[in-house]
Computed example of a mutant assay.
Amino acid sequence: MDTSQPLVVTLPAAPTREDVARLCAGLAAAPPGEVRCLVDAEAHGLAAVDALARLVLTARRHGHRLTFDGAGPELTGLLRLTGLDEIIRRGG
Rank of each mutant, 00 (worst) to 15 (best):
L66V: 01
D40K: 06
L81R: 15
V35N: 09
A48V: 02
E34A: 15
L46H: 12
A47S: 14
L23F: 04
V56D: 13
V56Y: 04
E18I: 00
G91R: 01
E86Y: 15
G63E: 06
A71V: 01
A59L: 01
L7M: 15
A48K: 02
L11Q: 02
D69F: 00
A41Q: 14
I87K: 06
L52A: 12
R90Y: 09
L23R: 04
A25L: 07
A59E: 05
A25V: 01
H64I: 03
V20S: 00
G92H: 10
G33S: 12
A53C: 13
L11C: 03
C37N: 00
A43N: 10
G26A: 05
Q5K: 13
A21I: 05
A25N: 13
T82P: 06
L23M: 10
L55M: 14
R90S: 15
G91K: 04
L57C: 09
D50S: 15
L84H: 08
L84T: 10
R54L: 12
I87T: 11
D85W: 00
L7R: 09
L79M: 14
R17C: 03
T16V: 11
D69L: 04
G70T: 01
R36D: 09
G63A: 03
E86W: 14
L78V: 07
D19L: 09
E42W: 03
G91D: 07
G33M: 11
G77V: 00
A29N: 09
V35E: 08
R80N: 10
V20M: 04
G77C: 03
L52Y: 10
P12A: 07
A41G: 07
D40E: 13
P6R: 04
A14T: 12
A21V: 12
L46Y: 14
A71H: 09
A29P: 00
L57A: 13
G77K: 02
D40A: 14
L7F: 00
F68R: 14
T16R: 14
T76D: 15
R90V: 11
A13C: 07
S4W: 03
G72I: 05
T3E: 13
P12S: 08
A47Q: 12
A21Y: 06
A51R: 08
V8D: 04
E74P: 00
R61C: 08
E74F: 09
D19V: 00
R60A: 04
G92A: 06
G91N: 05
A25D: 15
L52I: 13
R90W: 02
V9M: 07
G83M: 08
V49S: 07
T16L: 06
E34K: 12
L81V: 06
G77N: 11
A43P: 12
P32S: 11
A28T: 12
V39T: 03
R89I: 08
P12E: 09
A13T: 06
A71S: 10
A43F: 09
D40F: 05
T3Y: 08
A47N: 11
R36T: 07
G91M: 05
T67H: 14
A14F: 04
A71Y: 08
